[in-house]
Design a protein around this nucleic acid. Structure first.
Lengths: 146, 146
DNA sequence: TGATTAAAAGACATCAGACTCTTATTAGAG
DNA sequence: CTCTAATAAGAGTCTGATGTCTTTTAATCA
């Protein structure tokens, strides 16, 4: 809930690459798009953003493709949220009061502070590596469903 | 965070009507739009939806305008979320795994269940009346900021 | 009843996110 | 060096949310 389709595509793409990386070194955009039932060209653009941001590497040409950067498995998932969706939304007041903050709180401010904190915490404490702890074949199935 | 502009406009509009209702019986769309710095015609459409859904009443003609339905102050705010945004988003998997559920959970499923529950709870236990407990003049200022 | 006032309704415009297609660019293989 | 496979990049389409404008309907009052 609450995150863009780009985030979902990117996350599933990264996990797919992570699982596949053991077998053959690089993964092509075509393969990811087909296996995950995701629009190919759109995924391509998102992957470019992620390469620029440093979570993925890519090489062109024959036998080219995408692969994980060295530190990616130890990177918290919130990093991807920053790349695809930005963090601004987490600062917004749920009631859309413009100057809502601790000193001038909306009626739900403090209750929502707590919810936000827990929400962000889920994405901050879990790394991409943590998401791979399940059986990899099970994970592949979950990623691939149409 | 996470809710549409329509929700924000509607909520502020309802609270404005609630505060004003003491003084003169009905409130015109023009007044609300001006005081809350919200696009008038767009707000009009949203208010119509809310009238249909039963949280507001309206009458046309001279001295017409919008006013609260009898039970509105005792209605939880989640009702408005249903009207403007729908509840589907709360069922979605954060990682966009299609068949994510308790039996076939994504790696973050149970942690997010908890976050969702708390989030929904804030909107379910707080009624529109609860949001009015602050000083009304302070609330008016908060609603009105550009 | 007729004039006036305000909401209801519908047509239209704009913008951003999602998605597609085409054309460069780059890097490896022979 | 040349060919080719694959990413990079950019223009363009589509759709839904947001926002505007105009016409219709209904209620009040003289």
């Amino acid at each position: 809930m609450f995150l863009s389709k780009s985030f979902g595509y990117a996350l599933r793409g990264i996990l797919y690459i992570a699982v596949m990386q053991d077998e053959h070194r690089k993964v092509q955009i075509d393969e990811i798009a087909t296996k995950l039932s995701v629009p190919k060209h759109f995924l391509g653009k998102i992957m470019q953003q992620i390469v620029k941001a440093g979570l993925l590497k890519s090489t062109k040409g024959p036998y080219g493709g995408f692969y994980l950067a060295a530190e990616t498995l130890n990177t918290p998932v919130i990093k991807l949220v920053e790349i695809t969706d930005g963090m601004e939304q987490f600062g917004m007041c749920v009631l859309s009061f413009k100057y809502c903050n601790g000193l001038n709180p909306c009626p739900l401010h403090f209750e929502m502070e707590d919810v936000k904190k827990n929400y962000l915490n889920v994405f901050s404490k879990n790394t991409f590596g943590d998401l791979l702890n399940d059986s990899k074949s099970d994970l592949l199935k979950s990623l691939a469903v149409i």
